[in-house]
């Protein structure tokens, strides 16, 4: 596949055009803002954490296809997960975009979409776009 088609896969484009969990929560327990000055991407993330579990999550903001799709896919992946597990997913994601982990033969279905970002490794200037949402998640979880 051409690198450009590998980066802008259909799944990514779908999430960009129709992001999931986009908007605001009634009563967020945690929130954070993330900026990528290079791209001008901005994301606002809201979490509702109960008993160490992320029961709901929403994001808003402006950004490129990669940062927006990444945020959308992240919210899907962490919704309903224990906080600790979400943090581990962040680490896994950083490894994926840096090309430090191989794409498994059959990733569990709810994590499958994280691996479409493995194409980003060929675009070093765009890695920050892909990781913005996850860094913002870590910032939000630091508040207690």
């Amino acid at each position: 596949m051409e690198p450009i088609r590998d980066l802008y896969q259909q799944v990514l484009l779908e999430h960009y055009k129709h992001p999931h969990n986009y908007g605001h929560l009634e009563h967020p327990t945690h929130q954070a803002d993330g900026d990528n000055p290079l791209c001008g991407d901005h994301i606002h993330l809201e979490l509702q954490v109960e008993n160490d579990t992320i029961v709901d999550v929403k994001f808003s903001g402006m950004g490129c296809a990669i940062s927006k799709a990444s945020a959308s896919i992240m919210t899907q992946a962490i919704k309903g997960k224990p906080v600790e597990e979400a943090k581990q997913l962040a680490d896994l994601f950083y490894q994926i975009v840096k090309g430090e982990t191989d794409v498994p033969e059959a990733p569990s279905s709810d994590l499958e979409e994280l691996f479409i970002f493995s194409g980003v490794r060929d675009f070093p200037t765009r890695v920050k776009c892909a990781t913005l949402a996850w860094h913002t998640l870590e910032d939000a979880l630091k508040q207690s």
Binding site: C39, C64, K68, R126
Partner: peptide, 11 residues
């Protein structure tokens, strides 16, 4: 987004 345009043109 302009950065996506930039990446595609760069390629």
């Amino acid at each position: 987004h302009p950065h996506d345009i930039g990446t595609i043109l760069d390629q």
